[in-house]
Simulated assay, not measured.
Amino acid sequence: MPAIGIGTWHMGDDAATKATEIKAIQTGLNAGATVIDTAEMYGNGRSESLVGEAIAPYDRDQLFLISKVLPNNASQAQMEAHLDASLKRLGTDYVDLYLYHWRGGIPLSETVDELQRLTTTGKIKSWGVSNFDLSDMQELWRLPNGVKAAANEDLYNLGSRGIEYSLLDWQTQHHVPLIAYSPVSNGDQLGANLTTNEAVLTVARQHDATPYQILLAWAIHRSQILAIPQTSDSEHMAANVAAGEIRLTTDDLALLDRAYPAPSRKEPLDVL
């Protein structure tokens, strides 16, 4: 699938922007994106409802829908009911990937076993995790069904490279793709004002691209990564998808590395 999908965090919250947001999602799909990432948490389900309206005219089998279950709902007793509610809002009878949004108080083994059971119902095609660090993934892998996790979704961008120290290599070795959320950062997130950095601007000029496109191209330059940027602007959405065609050179990557070096020690997992 294309390495750039559509994120929907903060979408669906305002009725006044609903039509604009639906148009943005559809612009992304028309430009070639096939992955849409959402969650029951986003707007208390309003994001899923928005996605459901946006995808209604499209061939469902050509889309890859990701949603997430909240930790408090990730028990054997509650998960399926919350999945059913997500499916109803999305207007579909299955999601392609269902993620455990972050770790909570329910035993990981119980959550994993229920996620795996739900694959037998046809309501989810695969399952994975989100906001998991290396120790979480190692614990997951020790569970009988843990190795069936299809992906891990973490915050990752040029200004937030902590997972490169150990987690990203572990996922590569274990064939677990990374879904990168906030791949162009979130404003001045974590002190990294990425879009105005001179190295980013230099690479952007060399590729006749925007800084945002360079940040996306950097986020997906490893083959195991899917980036899910969010925008409610149709023009920006089309540019996001087009960034998947940019190929950064060795010199580009070296320049960006000097501006934002890879971690030299283990760092706490960045979370938004």
Rank of each mutant, 00 (worst) to 15 (best):
residue 116 Q to Y: 11
residue 179 I to F: 13
residue 151 A to R: 07
residue 110 E to I: 05
residue 248 L to A: 10
residue 208 D to N: 15
residue 9 W to S: 11
residue 80 E to V: 03
residue 71 P to A: 09
residue 58 Y to A: 10
residue 267 E to N: 11
residue 87 L to F: 03
residue 159 G to L: 12
residue 186 N to R: 15
residue 67 S to H: 06
residue 53 E to S: 14
residue 67 S to C: 08
residue 68 K to V: 01
residue 65 L to E: 07
residue 227 A to N: 03
residue 186 N to I: 05
residue 189 Q to G: 03
residue 23 K to M: 05
residue 145 N to V: 00
residue 63 L to T: 07
residue 221 H to S: 11
residue 217 A to R: 04
residue 134 L to Y: 14
residue 128 G to V: 07
residue 210 T to H: 04
residue 242 A to L: 10
residue 119 T to K: 07
residue 169 D to W: 04
residue 101 H to L: 09
residue 53 E to Y: 01
residue 185 S to A: 15
residue 2 P to H: 08
residue 242 A to Q: 14
residue 50 L to M: 08
residue 126 S to K: 12
residue 152 N to R: 10
residue 218 W to G: 06
residue 71 P to D: 13
residue 28 G to L: 05
residue 187 G to K: 10
residue 129 V to T: 15
residue 248 L to C: 07
residue 107 P to A: 05
residue 104 G to T: 05
residue 125 K to C: 08
residue 75 S to F: 09
residue 139 E to I: 02
residue 135 S to I: 05
residue 102 W to H: 10
residue 22 I to R: 02
residue 225 I to Q: 12
residue 264 S to M: 13
residue 182 S to T: 15
residue 80 E to S: 13
residue 10 H to A: 12
residue 216 L to I: 06
residue 258 R to W: 02
residue 225 I to F: 11
residue 131 N to V: 06
residue 252 D to C: 12
residue 209 A to I: 01
residue 10 H to I: 13
residue 106 I to R: 08
residue 235 E to C: 02
residue 131 N to C: 04
residue 266 K to V: 13
residue 267 E to Q: 15
residue 30 N to V: 02
residue 159 G to M: 11
residue 40 E to P: 01
residue 227 A to M: 03
residue 172 T to G: 06
residue 246 I to M: 04
residue 194 L to K: 14
residue 98 Y to V: 05
residue 111 T to K: 11
residue 231 T to A: 08
residue 257 D to N: 15
residue 265 R to I: 10
residue 140 L to K: 07
residue 153 E to D: 00
residue 178 L to W: 08
residue 211 P to A: 00
residue 168 L to F: 15
residue 217 A to N: 02
residue 18 K to N: 07
residue 147 V to K: 15
residue 21 E to Q: 15
residue 38 T to C: 12
residue 71 P to K: 09
residue 116 Q to M: 02
residue 13 D to A: 04
residue 20 T to P: 00
residue 23 K to A: 15
residue 19 A to L: 12
residue 39 A to T: 03
residue 259 A to N: 03
residue 136 D to T: 00
residue 105 G to S: 12
residue 113 D to K: 13
